[in-house]
Amino acid sequence: MTSFGYTLMTEQSGPRDLVRYAVAAERAGFDFEVSSDHYSPWLAEQGHAPYAWTTLGAIAHATERVGLMTYVTCPTTRYHPAVVAQKAATLQLLAEGRFTLGLGSGENLNEHVVGQGWPTVGVRQEMLAEAIEVIRALHTGELVDHRGTHFDVESARIWDLPEQGVDIGVAVAGERGIEQLAPLADHLVAVEPRADLVEAWNATEGAPKVGSGGARAVGQIPICWGPDEDEAVQLAHEQFRWFAGGWKVNADLPTPAGFSGATQFVRPDDVAESIPCGPDLDKIVESVSAFWEAGFTDIALVQVGDALQERFLAEAAEPLLEKLRAAAP
């Protein structure tokens, strides 16, 4: 059965609002909730960037049923993997087993802030692979000393560990990343509904297979539900025109000003072509279906715009979930 999630967009909402939305999303019937982990919003118009881990800790106590996940954390530059291992273990304890650690190779927008530079994609993937090894080692509860290519760990131990451990999902976008990272992960994470990613993952030796109760393939899609289609298109353009750049561009831009400049010629109609906007729930279902048709098991919805969150959750979420579950495998 396909699972449907709600995205806690730290770039467009403050921390107290995010906790309220998380509770409302659980009440509306979402299966899981994912949180972005940013130091800056993509665009100044979004206006927020609270610390994801503090917010998730509050959400873990405010909710009871929904799964929780970072989508995604970069454990290589802004955070050392030993620190990520500790906070992931703590959050799993607070969530009583509902948390999945989603990891990725990062974006310049968030990682450059600590002054360590921005490596090439090949180096970033090497760093991520080593970081996962460090996190796995620390999650055994043993004393860890590690001397690696990118990270050192000295006499480190995680003292508060959940019995069930912490599953790790890894964001991938191509065959090289899958070959290197899939054998280290429990679940696949991707932002495009590409069947070739799922197929390559399943074909990789040592990788947990997607489906049949094994690995999850977790995707994410932005939508902009709203009672007026034109207003929804304008909101999506204001808040989410950065989405048009694609991952290869978005990963390297360093500031919201850079994203603003890179997207200055993106039109509202361009955004509407890639993000379903307005009150038509069937149009949203059609867009989301691309993910389950590609073999994804879990799909998180991003409702664009803080101004529409409460109304979306109160009016549209339940009927939309009914339609999605009726249509999905």
Rank of each mutant, 00 (worst) to 15 (best):
244 A>P: 00
266 V>K: 10
255 T>V: 08
260 S>Q: 15
292 W>E: 00
267 R>L: 14
282 D>P: 04
295 G>P: 02
291 F>V: 05
262 A>P: 01
235 L>Q: 13
275 I>S: 06
284 I>H: 06
307 A>M: 05
233 V>N: 00
247 W>I: 15
286 E>R: 12
247 W>F: 10
245 G>S: 04
237 H>V: 05
245 G>H: 05
288 V>N: 06
293 E>Y: 01
253 L>Q: 06
268 P>L: 08
298 D>E: 14
295 G>F: 03
287 S>T: 01
263 T>A: 03
243 F>R: 10
274 S>R: 14
290 A>W: 11
292 W>R: 05
238 E>N: 03
306 D>F: 07
256 P>C: 04
253 L>I: 15
261 G>W: 11
260 S>L: 14
297 T>G: 06
287 S>P: 00
246 G>S: 07
282 D>I: 11
265 F>P: 00
239 Q>I: 14
313 L>W: 11
288 V>R: 03
258 G>L: 06
286 E>W: 02
249 V>G: 00
232 A>R: 08
292 W>G: 05
294 A>Y: 08
270 D>F: 05
282 D>E: 14
232 A>E: 05
242 W>M: 12
266 V>N: 04
314 A>R: 12
249 V>P: 00
231 E>M: 08
262 A>Y: 13
270 D>K: 09
302 V>W: 01
235 L>M: 14
310 E>K: 12
281 L>Y: 04
241 R>T: 00
259 F>S: 03
285 V>D: 02
264 Q>A: 15
291 F>H: 04
286 E>Q: 11
254 P>A: 15
241 R>I: 02
264 Q>S: 15
261 G>C: 06
237 H>R: 08
241 R>K: 14
255 T>P: 08
252 D>R: 12
233 V>C: 05
254 P>M: 13
281 L>P: 00
296 F>R: 02
254 P>K: 12
271 V>Y: 06
283 K>T: 10
277 C>W: 12
256 P>H: 13
258 G>C: 07
258 G>F: 10
315 E>D: 15
310 E>A: 10
